[in-house]
Design a protein around this nucleic acid. Structure first.
Lengths: 345, 345
DNA sequence: CTGTTAGCGCTTTCAG
DNA sequence: CTGAAAGCGCTAACAG
């Protein structure tokens, strides 16, 4: 109100300002504000400090604190993309544990190797005390985690094709379950099985486990190897719907579809029903991921995935690594995917 | 290999180590590594520094750099929860701009006022150079943003019921569109209109715009005011499905349902179809949010929401605030929701 | 119980 | 073109 024209930018108060106002030293301010048990401070002094801090609207500077303490009290989650249910669940599980441990969570999105390298660089620069990397195997394959691991940085990686060396690994092997699902389709008489994959599933030389299982099933069981039966569309509900709609409009449509995500598999069920087809009679549908959403489709979604979607073991590995401070040997936990037969195939 | 038993924790290399190895001063290291144009360094020296840094596997310490520079080159996104499509879109839009501006993004999840206060505390402690707060109006109502705004911290808030004072606000007023949707239902002869809300929509004294519009429509148009027609279930696809299924099993079921999310509205269409009902004939369904997913339902989803889901204006406000460094006046951008009639009502 | 002091690792004037 | 030196704001020994 006094100077509406050129509001003078008064600098943020520091612990020194608080100390001065309370008539104590900065050390005392630090002790009071961090409430350490080994450092008893007189009640009167403590109150003066608290009052001073409150009246100055003081907030301690994180960078300075991190620098001095040599830790950030933060963990970092590196995910491959936004809006993917499994990453969402991972984020939830991580937040739950981090909150309990009074740790903050920072999330970085690294959809390609370039971004992932940037994220790793940030980690090397000490942006957090540990990290959970879940960018997917495709990106992981192009990454070198050695520089991080070499510095004993607490790290847990979700990936099926990395070796635990200097960090921990959480694996979800998919192949066996996918093969079982495909065999089931074959056993129930399907010959023209389509594959709806993520865009990344076919990327260059990389081949996802789901796609790999599909290719080998086609070969092994002598199925119709029609390239027009392999399409992208698993990344997204809408894309999935359109992809399956297009498949069904083929002159020789598929009699089954193996979809690399449950989201898109649900869209597949719709697309089939909207085309006047009966699932599974006219089109068998198998999804991937075992999301709860598959329970409410009609028919309920047959899928492959972990029998329970729970990342807390991986999260706990991370926190145990952070707590130990040691250079632990690399641990691996493995959660096999299973074939979960419900109504759609 | 040499000492497998007690791996000595060699400390991370600092700029001093690099300087020593390169035979230059730490200042030169800083100049080289930050590649400043105003400070030309001899090519030979520069190369020595780069080699030294590489051979030591050096990564500059962020905390120290942030402390000295008095900025973090990071922005913070505070969202109300994980796995909500609109927050996902917001995160995407923010990441897009931040990447281009060479800014990092840290995300915090603040589902309730306590968490939100913690997040704000972190912001006050300088965890980022600016923030986008999107926790939803319910949480926002319990929050005091003054302490942040007072320190001229660059801030943009997504909220319909906050005043832009010391920060910018992006509003998406819902009420008018909701009223239009409800009037449309009434005009097409619906009398028993159900409301499927988020758990937070009824929280204590708080009443969301969607729910408020529903209550007033019931009163104004003299609709059946049956409390059993008001249920939670909008937070989640599965919950939404179950909630609508239960509504349809009522002895006096609704003839229309206004759902506070598109996700759950889609589940509502399914639930109706699975119950052998025709949409919209037997049950009219209106969603909220205008997600792309509503285009692929059968019938396509009638909804209320912004005509285009785009948060980049809000994001740009944030970055302009950060860039200016000034204490700008609070700006407000308003994007009205509209009634988008498709097939389901 | 409280104060003094020495840095954490980096950037940035200011000299040379 | 390069170096010396002064801190950024905080915590943690160590004294008293």
């Amino acid at each position: 109100m006094a100077e509406p024209t050129r509001e003078s930018h008064r600098p943020k108060p520091t612990s020194r300002d608080v100390a001065a106002l309370a008539g104590v030293s900065v050390a005392t301010v630090s002790y009071v504000l961090n409430g350490r048990r080994d450092r008893r401070v007189g009640d009167a002094t403590r109150q003066r400090v608290l009052d001073a801090a409150a009246s100055l609207n003081y907030a301690p500077n994180q960078s300075a604190r991190d620098l001095r303490r040599r830790r950030t009290q933060r963990v970092c989650l590196v995910v491959g993309s936004i809006g993917v249910p499994t990453y969402d669940k991972l984020a939830e599980d991580l937040h739950a544990v981090a909150d309990a441990a009074e740790y903050g969570v920072v999330t970085m999105v690294a959809g390609d190797a370039d971004r992932a390298r940037k994220a790793i660089e940030s980690l090397r620069q000490g942006i957090a005390d540990g990290a959970l990397i879940a960018t997917g195997d495709r990106v992981l394959a192009e990454l070198s985690l050695e520089s991080l691991a070499a510095s004993a940085f607490p790290l847990v990686v979700l990936g099926n094709h990395v070796e635990a060396s200097g960090f921990d690994v959480s694996r979800f092997p998919e192949t066996a379950a996918c093969e079982r699902a495909l065999r089931h389709l074959v056993d129930s008489g399907r010959r023209r099985i389509a594959f709806v994959g993520h865009r990344g599933d076919f990327d260059g030389t990389y081949r996802s486990e789901r796609y790999g299982a599909y290719r080998s099933a086609v070969a092994r069981h002598g199925l119709d190897a029609d390239e027009s039966l392999v399409v992208a569309g698993a990344d997204d509900r809408v894309e999935g719907y359109r992809a399956v709609k297009a498949l069904l409009a083929l002159s020789a449509p598929p009699d089954a579809v193996f979809v690399a995500s449950d989201r898109a598999a649900i869209s597949a069920i719709w697309a089939a029903r909207d085309a006047g087809l009966s699932v599974p009679r006219d089109l068998a549908v198998v999804g991937s991921g075992n999301l709860p959403d598959g329970l409410i489709t009609n028919p309920p979604l047959t899928t492959v995935g972990p029998s329970r979607l729970d990342y807390s073991p991986a999260v706990r590995m991370l926190f145990s690594r952070i707590a130990s401070g040691q250079q632990l040997p690399g641990r691996t936990i493995t959660t096999d995917w299973t074939f979960i037969r419900r109504g759609s195939a």
